[in-house]
Design a protein around this nucleic acid. Structure first.
Lengths: 357, 357
DNA sequence: TGTCAACACGAAAACGTTTTCGCTAAGAAT
DNA sequence: ATTCTTAGCGAAAACGTTTTCGTGTTGACA
């Protein structure tokens, strides 16, 4: 077991100075061709690679991005990670992931841990508990330390940073309009509690679409699920709630659900009580995950393009990091020319499958 | 925007030496109570936190684990990551993830990138292309550099390291035996090509179960899917292959599939050609993912306990890392007492749902 | 012969820590 | 009065780089 070789060792072995080795390896013309060749050959032979940590310390940048998400066993989030990793890798960055597990405290701990030099910037989606508490001081503290943040999906106006979101509102409008077009008369909504911004926005889109088409929103047709009651028998509760919902509103002929689990469960429940899809009830979900694709019938859904969200987030962050770099190299630092914060909206797209006519 | 404060700045501000500050902050009794208090108060005020990178360089260890997996948008792998992150975090480590995207080259590049000081050890699952090529030199090279590796799920005997696997063989045996018990007479297998070891092992388990129960294996009842033909219309191809398979073997009354996608697709196809589940055909899958839970009918499946795999892998790796630590602190390094490599087997468990009687 | 530029290289600082080893001064012990 | 402890602190090395600034040698040129 031989440890990795260092400049110092090469220098000693070849009886030159460390500086000479370093320069030779970067093809500096300060060094004669002879010694350059000798050193490069030796370095190649021993498979020399500069130590990343030492470089990070010297350059005061780590070339790694911190990702902080509420949950990783989740199709949408893992898709986003894939997108981030793609462009990060292409642009020479690594990614280090932290999971908040939807917890405020874990979010803070993770941020502080990574902010102490481990990363150059964050890409994150806010945890539910944080959204509930509405306490965003840790984000602003991080930004004040000079560590840029890009927020995606679950964002918040109280923090000044780049943001990448899907057009939840418009996506919902499009979905509901499609149901209207397909002649649904009583369109139900299955959504989450309002403190999750995406749930709120999709709900607003639902209402907007109804009103602009002269439908009268009926609060009986809106089912709000409280998913703070965690796991375990969550699925059963969901099923019974939806079953009760359908039974007390037999006139429902269209359902818009704000995520695919609700949509798929709705279909399952509907079938159980003798309704067939899409004949009796048409269903549209949100988030194009693996469930939508393989459900029976396959689910028409609003795709969020998670990978694209990840890619754009990464580009935004790296752009800013490298802009800072360039800036700090200028003689006259012109503060005014800093790029404004961008709020990038990724268009949704409806993928038609078999749960609509 | 104030950069993070350093020991040097505190020292200058309080007119003491850097060493004094460092010692005071670690409550060294070399320093008088007076100065200690003064320094600690100042540090707290300015929210001093030691710089991780500097610590890593000094200690020659980063307290971070490199995860290298073929794909992240995948229920099993993300579950494993969650497990790793859990124990890593608890034991004071961070995780940095790299995706090989099933590519040999990307696997190597990622490893080399991270091996240059960024991480203390790897937890990885081998890419398909690497398995095909059977070229494992990069793993051995990394180990020789003193960077320990833990492999999970897709492992290989050519590399000497800790391994965590599920008992694919036994899991398959149990699944097939359950079908036998439920009076299936002609049990089909839907599997992958043999170079993916998990596919091979599950296939062997299938055969073993049949033989030990005096069933005669029939090669017509085995469908091998070549999933190297990538994405795009992969799903359609899968469906037509399965449809053709069912039609040419109308006697099939039980199906064991080596992953949940194959199982769910088999159910879908079966229903399409008029067979009902579980009455006409009973189906068991492998991998307890989101698909199995929400399919209709819900799928009986062999659960792999991905999170547990991740947790065990992380514990194995960190144990070894900290053992090395302890060892290097001993005066007489006793090489003989090194822990042998462990192959840990995580038991599978059958979760019965509605696709079996 | 003396001056100067070019060439080839080395010394040292810096990034932010921790830790070992001195050093000084004061009090205790002889 | 002299030596020995000890408390309290600082200097410096080390981790592995890169980069700036010398510095010595050579050859050319006046």
């Amino acid at each position: 077991m031989k440890r990795k070789i260092t400049l110092k060792q090469i220098a000693r072995e070849l009886d030159v100075s460390i500086s000479t080795v370093s320069k030779a390896l970067s093809n500096s013309k300060e060094i004669s061709e002879d010694t350059t060749q000798k050193i490069q050959a030796f370095a190649k032979l021993y498979n020399y690679r500069p130590n990343n940590i030492a470089l990070s310390l010297k350059n005061r940048k780590t070339k790694t991005i911190g990702i902080l998400i509420p949950e990783i066993v989740h199709h949408f989030f893992s898709t986003v990670i894939r997108g981030i990793e793609r462009v990060a890798n292409r642009r020479g960055y690594n990614v280090i992931v932290g999971l908040s597990n939807e917890s405020f405290t874990k979010e803070i701990i993770n941020m502080e841990l990574l902010a102490n030099g481990s990363i150059d910037g964050f890409i994150l989606s806010i945890s539910k508990e944080t959204l509930l508490k509405q306490d965003y001081h840790h984000f602003n503290a991080t930004i004040n330390q000079g560590i840029p943040i890009v927020m995606f999906d679950r964002v918040v106006s109280e923090v000044d940073c780049d943001k990448v979101i899907v057009d939840d509102f418009k996506g919902a409008v499009k979905a509901v309009e499609m149901l209207i077009e397909k002649t649904c008369k009583n369109i139900a909504l299955i959504t989450t509690m309002d403190y999750v911004s995406v749930g709120r926005l999709r709900t607003q889109g639902y209402l907007e679409a109804l009103e602009s088409h002269k439908y009268v929103p009926d609060s009986n047709l809106i089912l709000k699920i409280d998913d703070s009651l965690d796991v375990e028998n969550h699925l059963e509760i969901l099923e019974t709630e939806i079953a009760h919902f359908f039974k007390s509103n037999p006139n429902i002929d269209g359902v818009f659900a704000v995520n695919e689990l609700y949509a798929v469960t709705a279909m399952k429940v509907a079938r159980k009580i003798g309704l067939s899809i899409p004949e009796d009830i048409q269903v549209i979900g949100f988030t194009d995950g693996v469930l939508s694709k393989h459900a029976t019938p396959s689910l028409t859904t609003v795709s969020q393009h998670g990978q694209k969200i990840g890619e754009q987030s990464a580009n935004l962050l790296i752009d800013r990091l490298e802009a800072e770099d360039a800036e700090s190299e200028q003689y006259f630092t012109n503060n005014e020319q800093k790029r404004d914060f961008i709020k990038m909206v990724i268009e949704t797209e409806i993928i038609e499958r078999d749960s609509t006519k």
